[in-house]
């Protein structure tokens, strides 16, 4: 890509979840020394509304074209931050996450070593961020029918709800009849009916 990367690093304290073990000021300062990082800032909670507003604001103000958030696992908040970037007009795939909580602050107690590791994690994330490329997501239609596997009480309820909403439901049951385990039960608690 012709455009030179301009990376912004947002370091989350997550209250004391990260800041309790990792020196977030040090990580934030240090992040600025990494190649192509033009801006870094510390947030109390990056995922919270004020944190997200900061990301959006600085994308515009600092003309950022890559965003790195150093916070928790991408399995939790990657979708949140991707959306946030998209709102600010940045392709969501130009976002990268550095997991300094689950993989660092929560599993180590030595502040110095945890901070060193957090810096490394941010450095590795920035290295990837420099080479990120925008991606276009494929939009696919959703077939207007549902498969329900299992005709016990849960499968029956889910099927009825979906069918009542007007969707075609295929309810597949292994046994010759629906009813599942509940069909064996005589009385039910707590109503004794």
């Amino acid at each position: 890509m012709a455009e030179e990367p301009r990376i912004g690093v947002f370091v989350c304290e997550c209250g004391i979840n990260i800041a309790g073990t990792v020196d977030c000021d040090e990580v934030t300062e240090w992040a600025r020394t990494l190649p192509n990082v033009v801006f870094s800032v510390k947030n109390r909670y990056t995922c919270a509304e004020p944190g997200q507003q900061e990301i959006k604001r600085f994308i515009k103000e600092k003309n950022l074209n890559r965003v790195v958030v150093a916070s928790c696992t991408p399995r939790m908040h990657e979708p949140t931050f991707r959306r946030c970037c998209a709102d600010a007009g940045l392709n969501p795939y130009l976002f990268e996450m550095a997991n300094i909580r689950e993989h660092c602050s929560w599993v180590h107690s030595d502040r110095k070593k945890a901070t060193e590791k957090a810096k490394d994690i941010v450095k590795v994330a920035v290295a990837k961020a420099r080479l990120l490329e925008p991606q276009e997501e494929l939009e696919v239609p959703v077939t207007q029918a549902a498969l329900v596997i299992g005709g016990g009480i849960a499968g029956i309820q889910a099927s009825l709800d979906l069918a009542d909403a007007g969707y075609q439901v295929y309810l597949v049951e292994k046994e010759p009849t629906i009813g599942g385990l509940m069909s064996y039960i005589n009385k039910t608690f707590p109503t004794m009916d």
Binding site: G151, A163, V169, Y170, E173, K174
Partner: peptide
């Protein structure tokens, strides 16, 4: 479930 026009029940099926 058996009566619902929108549910195709496939019992004894895998």
């Amino acid at each position: 479930v058996g009566r619902h026009p929108k549910i195709k029940l496939l019992a004894y099926s895998e």
